[in-house]
Computed example of a mutant assay.
Amino acid sequence: MPPKLSFHPPLLNTASPWATSHAHLATLLRCPSVGAVTTRTSLVAGFPHTPDTHRYALFDPATGTPVGAATFSGPPEDSNDNEAGRPDLDTDKIPLASLNTLGYSPLPLSEYLSIISSLADSLPSSSTPPKTFIISVTGSPSEILACHTLISSHATSVPFPLAMEINLSCPNIPNLPPPAYSPSSLSSYIDILPSESTIPIGIKIPPYTHAGQFDDLVSCLVGSETNHPPASKLSFLTATNTLGSCLLLDPASSSDDALLPGGGIGGMAGPPLHPLALGNVATLRRKFDADPRLAHLDIIGVGGVYDGQGYKRMRRVGAMAVGIATALGRQGVGVFASIEKDINSVW
């Protein structure tokens, strides 16, 4: 049985522009309503982030119109304070959605390991158990194996429990469709993982929209070996990432100009994604519970949660913990305390 991913409270951030920098991660670490901290997805050598190409915007999900006049690229060009900041709105409770053409973090994996070490050095002595860091990574299967080696080695030198999330779901990488949509690609990642790991390993999957995709995932996880199914290497899944092939038009243009660069097609997140994310989590939980080879897999439910009711819905359909991205960008880390207040700390 793989190591268990365990933390409390069952509320955390997910890989996003608002988990890029040392300042982001330090603020999340200090938030008492956060049980675990997830880094922005990194590669061994970093991602060639280009501010003119890789951007995001917030929009009103009821009207589909962008909020504010600007789009953002994320750090280091934008703020390191965990929030996009919308002074033109009079309440943080307005549910905003996001659309992005972003890739991955410009910081390499080694930089995140260094940040985690520096945060450990700055911790005051306390009896409170240290929070888990989920280090989100991506790359080729061989690079993922290298990431696992680096993270596992680093886990022995820091007080934080470490876990590795393999992001197989970004819709914005040209000529590289999300591997979790392809059974053969997904299997190539799981197959290369060690049979035994000292740290929990999970995969982040894209939104699935029909039954065949769930069936393909289960087939990959079960495999053909009765005694050692591929799922025995995994501890959790993060469901879901953004929904690709979405578009926002520029309200300042009289033509069909896109708001975001490069044709504007990108990944959508926030409240419009919530029903689909709920359906994904519910379907996965039912399928996992129906097979003893999969029942150990936990699910981090992600997609459109911004208040206590959304948190409760995710937990009702089987999420072990609930992840926040767009609402973190909108409200800052205060969103976590707001959710805890909404549910009266009844996790």
Score class of each variant (00 low, 15 high):
residue 8 H to S: 12
residue 8 H to Q: 12
residue 9 P to V: 02
residue 10 P to Q: 15
residue 12 L to M: 14
residue 16 S to A: 15
residue 19 A to P: 02
residue 19 A to D: 09
residue 21 S to N: 05
residue 23 A to G: 03
residue 23 A to M: 11
residue 23 A to C: 09
residue 28 L to F: 10
residue 29 L to S: 02
residue 29 L to R: 01
residue 33 S to V: 01
residue 33 S to R: 07
residue 35 G to M: 05
residue 36 A to M: 13
residue 42 S to G: 09
residue 43 L to K: 13
residue 53 T to H: 13
residue 53 T to D: 12
residue 55 R to A: 07
residue 58 L to S: 09
residue 60 D to Y: 10
residue 60 D to M: 10
residue 61 P to T: 10
residue 65 T to G: 06
residue 71 T to K: 13
residue 71 T to G: 11
residue 74 G to H: 09
residue 86 R to K: 12
residue 94 I to V: 15
residue 100 N to V: 02
residue 100 N to G: 04
residue 101 T to K: 12
residue 101 T to P: 02
residue 107 L to Y: 13
residue 108 P to R: 13
residue 114 S to M: 12
residue 115 I to W: 12
residue 117 S to G: 07
residue 118 S to K: 11
residue 122 S to C: 08
residue 125 S to P: 00
residue 140 S to R: 06
residue 142 S to D: 13
residue 153 S to E: 15
residue 154 H to Q: 09
residue 158 V to S: 01
residue 162 L to N: 09
residue 163 A to Q: 09
residue 163 A to E: 04
residue 165 E to H: 04
residue 172 N to L: 10
residue 178 P to I: 04
residue 183 P to Y: 12
residue 190 I to H: 01
residue 195 S to Y: 10
residue 195 S to T: 14
residue 196 E to P: 00
residue 196 E to G: 02
residue 197 S to G: 06
residue 198 T to G: 14
residue 202 G to N: 04
residue 207 P to W: 13
residue 208 Y to V: 06
residue 208 Y to F: 15
residue 221 L to S: 06
residue 225 E to S: 15
residue 229 P to Y: 04
residue 232 S to L: 04
residue 232 S to C: 13
residue 232 S to A: 14
residue 234 L to Q: 01
residue 237 L to T: 02
residue 256 D to P: 00
residue 264 G to R: 03
residue 265 I to Y: 08
residue 276 L to A: 11
residue 276 L to E: 06
residue 281 V to M: 03
residue 284 L to C: 03
residue 291 D to K: 00
residue 295 A to W: 00
residue 297 L to A: 00
residue 300 I to Q: 01
residue 301 G to L: 06
residue 308 G to Y: 08
residue 315 R to M: 12
residue 323 G to P: 01
residue 323 G to M: 07
residue 328 L to K: 10
residue 331 Q to K: 14
residue 332 G to W: 06
residue 338 S to T: 11
